[in-house]
């Protein structure tokens, strides 16, 4: 059975992890490569590097980070943040990224999704959407697409945009809830569920995880195929294995056997 993926997300700028982590057993917790290797050993199913540097992709230390990561971490690596065009995608994939996450650039130029999917395959193109809850005058809610790192509302309905994005060739969707991000109140399960009902590609819940229940709810209530989290892992609130064991007990299929030697819980 296909397992639900647990994905730590690392915010990176100038080649360093932005938010400090509380791991004392890592040589350099500011080094994305060291953290990537650590999370791999912890049982992460995939990793996301999200670059928040403002300079153009070609000048970023990120490329070097991706290259070094790909030489020693052998799980899927998604890279996003500031990807503007096919050349950026090509550079990242050539150096070792497995998937490219596009957000603002895809809203400004939706053809970018088509071009990326045609050239590199849909499996490489992850459409990441920053979503803001809105209430209509009749009290019903909708979600607005927001770009430029959560600063610029677009008026576009998230549910329309994800359907269009998938039609254009996006192979996965990441839904970042601006309302829930950083609150530790849980994921926006209503949003994720609405998107999952309208699309046939994996949906990755992002933003809001604070407790173990939240990850379970994202999967069972939000119908997410994968959950992305940052602070609960970086702050050491829970390890990846804490999350996976909890989900397994709730009957959710997860990958516990990192080394493939035992059927259950095979850490070293």
């Amino acid at each position: 059975m296909l397992t639900k993926r647990i994905i730590p997300c690392l915010d990176v700028t100038e080649g360093r992890v932005v938010k400090g982590t509380r791991f004392i057993d890592i040589k350099d917790a500011g080094d994305p490569v060291e953290l990537a290797a650590y999370y791999d050993q912890q049982g992460a199913d995939e990793l996301v590097f999200y670059d928040i540097t403002a300079s153009s992709m070609g000048k970023r230390p990120l490329l070097e980070v991706v290259k070094r990561t790909a030489e020693r971490v052998f799980i899927p690596l998604t890279v996003g943040g500031g990807v503007r065009d096919l050349a950026d995608m090509h550079d990242l994939l050539a150096i070792g990224a497995d998937k490219i996450s596009v957000n603002t650039a895809a809203v400004k130029n939706p053809e970018l999704i088509n071009q990326g999917a045609e050239r590199f395959g849909s499996q490489c193109i992850v459409l990441s959407v920053d979503c803001l809850r809105r209430t209509k005058t009749d009290g019903s809610i909708w979600w607005e697409v927001v770009i430029n790192g959560g600063r610029t509302p677009t008026g576009i309905n998230v549910l329309d945009w994800v359907v269009e994005g998938v039609q254009r060739g996006a192979g996965e969707l990441v839904l970042n809830s601006i309302d829930y991000d950083g609150t530790h109140y849980g994921y926006d399960n209503l949003l994720n569920r609405e998107v999952a009902a309208r699309t046939a590609v994996p949906v990755i819940a992002s933003g809001g995880a604070g407790k173990l229940e939240h990850l379970r709810e994202a999967i069972l209530l939000g119908r997410a195929d994968a959950v992305l989290a940052a602070s609960i892992f970086h702050h050491g609130t829970y390890s990846i294995m804490d999350v996976k064991r909890y989900l397994a007990e709730a009957g959710i299929p997860v990958r516990l056997d990192i080394y493939g030697h035992t059927k259950q819980g095979g850490e070293r």
Partner: peptide
Amino acid sequence: LKVPQIGWNELKFTRPSPLFAGLQSGCH
């Protein structure tokens, strides 16, 4: 089904193979 299949799934061994030496059926 959601296509493509993306993610970690189980291998169920149907007979022994040297390619899977040391691994348990059901590994991901």
